[in-house]
C-alpha cells in the first residue's frame, strides 16, 4: 500500500516487482523472477503438499485422503458427466487447471499481510488468465481438428438450419466460438481484480476512518469493517466458483470439440 501520500492505493497489490534475476532474458524478453512467479511457486508447493496427503493410497482413507479424493472425484465426475468416457484423457489437464486456479485464488485471499508479506493473486493478472484461456482454447481447436478435420466447422451450423440462414448462423456461431478464450480469460481476471479492489477500498475506509476521529469510526469504519467480513466470505466463494467455472467451461468446450453438436 502506497502510504506515502497518505492515501491507500487499491491497485498497488497488483504491482509486479522483480525479486531477482532482473537481467535474465530469453530472446530479448525479460524473464525476471517476480512476486508473481514467487506466488506461482507457492501455489505449486501448496498444491503438491495437498496432493501428497492423498498419496497414501490406503483402502480405508484417512481424512486428508478423503479430501484429496473428493477433489479428484469432483473433477473426474464433472468430466464424465460433460464429456463421457472420452473425457478421461483430459481429466489431468482440467484437474491441474482447476486446482491451480483455486489455490492461486485462495492464496491471494490469505491474510499474510499481517506478518508483512505482500499477498499477490496470480490469477488477477490478465496475462496469466489469458495464457490459461489460450491453452484451453488451443486444446479445443487441436482436438476438434484432429478428430473431425474440416468437419469441425459443422460445429458452427446447428442441425436443422434452413439453407439461406447458413451464412448468417455460421458467422454468429463462429463469432461466439472465437470469443470464448476472451470471455474465459477475462471472467477470471475481472472477478479476481474487482474483488480485491473492493476489499482494499473498504480496508482503506476502515483505516482512514480510524485516523480521522471517533465520529468517522462510528459511521465509516465500523460499517465498512462489517461489510468487509461479508465481502471476504463472498470472495472466498468467488475463488471457488471462478475456478469451477473455468474448469467447467473448458470441459464443455472440449465436449463440443469431441462430439460436435
Amino acid at each position: 500500500m502506497a502510504a506515502e501520500s497518505g492515501k491507500i492505493d487499491p491497485m498497488h497489490q497488483f504491482l509486479i516487482e522483480p525479486l531477482f534475476g532482473q537481467d535474465w532474458a530469453i530472446a530479448g524478453h525479460n524473464i525476471a523472477f517476480t512476486n508473481s512467479a514467487l506466488w506461482m511457486v507457492i501455489t505449486l508447493a501448496a498444491l503438491w503438499l495437498f496432493m501428497l496427503g492423498g498419496m497414501k493410497r490406503e483402502l480405508v482413507p484417512g481424512r486428508w485422503q478423503v479430501m484429496v479424493e473428493g477433489f479428484t472425484g469432483f473433477i473426474t465426475s464433472m468430466m464424465h458427466a460433460n464429456i463421457g468416457p472420452e473425457g478421461k484423457k483430459f481429466t489431468p489437464y482440467v484437474f491441474s487447471l482447476f486446482m491451480f486456479i483455486l489455490i492461486a485464488n485462495i492464496l491471494g485471499m490469505m491474510p499474510v499481510g499481517i506478518v508483512g508479506v505482500h499477498p499477490f493473486t496470480v490469477t488477477s493478472h490478465l496475462t496469466v488468465t489469458g495464457v490459461l484461456a489460450i491453452i484451453s482454447f488451443s486444446i479445443v481447436l487441436i482436438v476438434g481438428f484432429w478428430r473431425h478435420g474440416f468437419h469441425f466447422f459443422s460445429l458452427f451450423v446447428p442441425h436443422g438450419t434452413p439453407g439461406y440462414m447458413v451464412p448468417l448462423i455460421f458467422m454468429i456461431e463462429l463469432f461466439s466460438f472465437m470469443i470464448r478464450p476472451f470471455s474465459l480469460g477475462l471472467r477470471l481476471f475481472v472477478a479476481m481484480t474487482a474483488g480485491h479492489i473492493l476489499m482494499k477500498v473498504l480496508a482503506g475506509f476502515v483505516i482512514n476512518g480510524l485516523n480521522a476521529g471517533a465520529l468517522t469510526v462510528a459511521i465509516v469504519s465500523i460499517p465498512s469493517f462489517i461489510l468487509m467480513i461479508g465481502i471476504t466470505l463472498l470472495e472466498l466463494l468467488v475463488c471457488a466458483i471462478q475456478a469451477y467455472v473455468f474448469a467447467l467451461l473448458t470441459s464443455l468446450y472440449l465436449n463440443d470439440a469431441i462430439h460436435l453438436h
Partner: peptide, 10 residues
C-alpha cells in the same frame, strides 16, 4: 514475458 515464462513452467 516473465509471467508467461513462469506460468508455463509452473
Amino acid at each position: 514475458a516473465s509471467q508467461i515464462f513462469w506460468l508455463l513452467i509452473i
